[in-house]
Write a protein that binds this DNA or RNA. Structure first.
Lengths: 212, 212
DNA sequence: ATGCAGTGCTGCAAAAATGCACTACTGTAG
DNA sequence: CTACAGTAGTGCATTTTTGCAGCACTGCAT
């Protein structure tokens, strides 16, 4: 396996690169929180991070991508975790365990929580997040295909990966970033249970209440 | 209900607007197919459509959005169809019928087929398509919430809508645009069946065939 | 036909994003 | 120590995207 999940910077070069990326990410989140996304230019972020604007776009595709860097790092991590799950687990089950394993570290990351709050304060950003999610979905889809021995173009891997991403998104969105990790995990479990049951009518649904 | 699904242009003004939008969409798809997305500038599209570049961005958020205009029109249509489904249908079932109903008209649309081929020829575009899909997902989510009497922030509507969008995307992507409508509908049915069953191990999976 | 309100279209300036070529430094081999 | 390959960072030109303000036309009322 060539996948080096360890973040150990082996050389000066690698370390500098990680530092630059980190600096850009941190500066972006900080400035976004301070002034709001609309009042922060790429120039500002770069000045705070000490690099040129061109360099910013060497690391990130769009201005907002720096804020979503967590998701891209998470993607690689999820793929590794999923690959490491025992082969006897059904794909959906393996994905469930994978997410469950990855979430605590996320919640423990102060930067990630900051970002989560940023998304709550600026819903416009959520729309751009889809891009990162799509990347994650494709990566997981490929990993599921590898697990099941199916083609990467087959329907099943895309369905399961898509469902898992939807679950993750929905749970994080509904989760209150001030509350505990357990809350998030509970919602994740509930979502996976709902999907595994074939998404039947809403659990707490009371037929006597028309809802209008 | 104030929703006017009818596309009848009541005044000259409305008609002109639709014409401009149509012209931009058509020009974009044609030029994209002729030269490839990278070799078409907004300026080119606007020249072909006879409007200024600034006007392009009054209609579409990004250069590629003109190509995805079908999805945005489809979104409104799906919401209307879903709202019209009988109340006794379960959400997932109602979404299944909704998509089944909308698809034939799409496939019959020559422009939509062109677009579908464009996506096959230029996979980079698929990445940008997620944006439209996300819009569609949110709209359907709200419609499901209305059907079930749940809050728009509840988990269930997002899960079902997300699953439906994933199904639609997967089916269209796997579908050969040269083949028949029935092929696409069959894949759609198969996907919905898989989701309704809780996404168990791949259906046509033959344990004897390693698939490598 | 005339005047008014609403708004579609446009030009302009600034910011975001991309391709290309160049510099400077890192890591490695001699 | 020196030479070399690889590549992160940069500057520049071009394209994409957005905010703002003005012009022109439509739809409506008089």
């Amino acid at each position: 396996m060539a996948a080096q999940t360890a973040e150990a910077a082996q050389g000066l070069r690698e370390r500098k690169k990680l530092e630059t990326r980190s600096a850009l990410r941190a500066a972006a989140v900080r400035l976004y929180l301070e002034r709001g996304p609309a009042d922060v230019t790429v120039h500002d972020i770069c000045e705070a991070a000490g690099v040129s604007p061109r360099t910013f776009f060497n690391y990130f595709e769009t201005k907002d991508d720096a804020v979503f860097d967590w998701d891209n790092r998470l993607t690689g991590q999820l793929v590794d975790l999923l690959t490491a799950r025992p082969a006897h687990e059904a794909p959906l089950e393996a994905l469930h365990h994978t997410l469950r394993t990855a979430i605590p570290a996320l919640v423990a990351d102060a930067g990630w929580r900051e970002r989560r709050k940023l998304l709550g304060a600026h819903p416009e950003l959520v729309r751009k997040l889809v891009h990162s999610n799509s990347h994650m979905s494709e990566a997981l889809s490929d990993a599921v295909a590898a697990r099941t021995g199916l083609s990467a173009d087959a329907l099943y891997p895309r369905l399961v990966a898509g469902a898992a991403i939807t679950v993750l998104r929905s749970a994080i969105r509904a989760w209150d970033p001030e509350s505990s990790t357990e809350e998030l995990l509970a919602m994740l479990d509930s979502c996976f249970a709902s999907v595994a049951a074939g998404l039947p009518e809403p659990p707490g649904d009371d037929p006597a209440r028309p809802g209008g």
